[in-house]
Design a protein around this nucleic acid. Sequence first.
DNA 1: GAACAGTTTTT
DNA 2: AAAAAC
DNA 3: GTTC
Length: 703
Amino acid sequence: MATEDAALKVKVARFEELYALDDSQDDEPDEGLLQSMAMLKRKRSEKSEPLAQTSSSSMTAISKRDRDAPEIPAKLQKLSRTTSAPPSLISPHKTASSRQLRRTSTLPKSVVTTTPTSDPADVAPKPAKLFSGLHFYFFPNNLKNPGRKFRIQKAEEYGAKWEQAFSATVTHIVVDRSMNYDQILQYLRLDAIPQQNIHVVDERYPADCISFRSIVDAGQRQYYIKGYKPQQVSEPTVIPRADSLQLKPAGRAVQTREPQTLSQRTTTTLSDPSPVKPASMATTVEDPSPGKRALEPSDSSLSAGWERPGPREQIVLSYCFGTDSRQLIDDDDDQGTTSTATTGTNLLDLGSSTVVPKWQQRFQCMQQNTGKNEDSPNAETIALLQEMAEYYTQIKDEWRPIAYRKAIATLRKHPVKVTTKEAAEKLPFIGERLAAKIEEITFAGFLQRLQSAREEPADQVLQLFLKVYGIGYAKGMRLVAQGYKTLEDLRTKADLDQNQKIGLEHFDDFNTRVPRLEVKQHSDLVAKAAKNLNEGIQVYTMGSYRRGAESTGDIDLVITHANWPMTRLRVMVIDSLVPQLFKQGFLKCALAATSRQDGSKWHGASCLPGSNVWRRIDFLLVPAEELGAALIYFTGNDIFNRSMRLLASKKGMRLNQRGLYKDVMRGKSREKLTEGELVEGRDEKKIFAILGVPWREPWERIC
DNA sequence: GAACAGTTTTT
DNA sequence: AAAAAC
DNA sequence: GTTC
Ligand SMILES: O=c1ccn([C@H]2C[C@H](O)[C@@H](COP(=O)(O)OP(=O)(O)OP(=O)(O)O)O2)c(=O)[nH]1
Ligand SMILES: [Mg+2]
């Protein structure tokens, strides 16, 4: 104990020192080399978006920053940079806008041109074709790093050919600053690179060419790669820089849990975990609100066999149901090993109980997640990590949020406060980097990284714009790059599409939580109108409402009919119900509205009579055969869904909003090759059973 | 080095 | 095909 | 970011 205290003190001291020095540092080189060079569709950006112009300067700015401190040890660099903007998590353009480039002596010689004009926004793309005839090979040669992705896209815009593989046609190898010369050779399995044909240049070479609108001399010293020794002259070994924020763009986003949303109110209503009615009758089907997520099996940890899934196998009572459900043997964890395709088809086994393999226990959907942290000793840590995850999500980092989420899940289950990184790293899904962050949180009470990011003005603007319905990361970045700073700017000057205009117009409305009671009112109103059209139409209130939330972000409704096929239901909804609701003045606008020949959803806004607050409302049209799957989907939460779907996939199945399918054939990278055969879609509980997931009440799906 | 959910609608 | 959304 |  005493020793531990001492150790803690040392750590505290270290942190204090660190923060005294200022500036974050938890960045690291980069994904490292050896990234798959395959894949990734190239982007042909023919859009005459006002991006080209601004971005060329951004690009320069990015590389410029590394040049500012050539060979200074990392620590000193930090000091020297303290005055400039803190590293932003905004990617790919990063701090570009906040950094004024200004070239000085480092000017390439063979320059022909003007300085980049800086007129924010507008203006056509460059002359293009600057790089015509050139073949660029990047190293690493993928789009994983936002900065690099950006460079590649730019290079292509300017006519360069991006070589997917290293070949004789390559004219330039554009190397990330985090890489060194030896790594290239090693990767390419070359002893040397034929210098006369191929130029090996630093990552900022293309940017410089663009800025100067000419192909600058690639042989200049400033474009040398780390570790490159022209001829034989021994260069001073370069100090490896630990810098560069790595953010991955593009892809899906992972939200984290139900926001503190409800946490603020209620506290004790842990009363009625009332029974879930099959919810199959009643027009507006509604789950009994569990006051709040009251239960909490974990609280005293060991209670319901929680803390640590343990090696035991769980017996799940499942529906007597004759369908496959073979267990994949082997392996643990929810990833890694490939699916073990459940080709076995047949439906022999399976009586009324199934043995669930232990690897399955690791899935989030296998736990009762009521979304509470409160009594976790790690609540504070969890909250901050969650913030990070959310941040990365917004910023369109595909994967980090997943990692954070897993780490959060393990922390949530951990009965003891985790303070040191040594302790943290022992836990599942917590690696070196997260362990360090956990330690940072406990000692400093905050995350430097998050703070700096949030303080960055450009970031704050982006955050604001992202809250406009219809504006996502890409559009948001563009708007920021164009210099817009306020919603007023957007309203008066920005080029927005119709939905974005609506989103802007009703910015406050759409960002206001909907009280549970109001959700019901909307739902009832729709149900009533539907009933009026046909008695058989049923409306279910879904989303966070069904999970018991006291307030929701929007109103999610499933509209179904026991006997009608989709086609008929759709016609009724689109041709009658929606128009009727518009006529009543309830529906205010259609956003991502559609559904015609093959549609299944309608998004818009609604407003209760007597109110003037517009709410986001979503209809999901569902034929009876798909109701079960639709209920699962639309109940969520999203994390729970993804967990269920991943689990299905590991079992060679596929789960979506229409049903559970088996014998799905998948190609590389999970690419779906076969639809698979429908196993179940109608019955929510059966789907759980087939997957070997114990039934989860809606409020136990808050992962 | 790959995998991390699976889809619908709009542009 | 990308972006935004659920 | 983490895991296999
Ligand atoms: O990426 C997503 C987003 C949503 N959903 C499902 C789960 C979710 O519960 C439901 C409704 O989506 P919504 O965005 O309305 O989320 P919510 O769970 O209802 O929360 P909120 O209160 O913010 O509306 O759609 C997904 O499967 N994947
Ligand atoms: Mg919702």
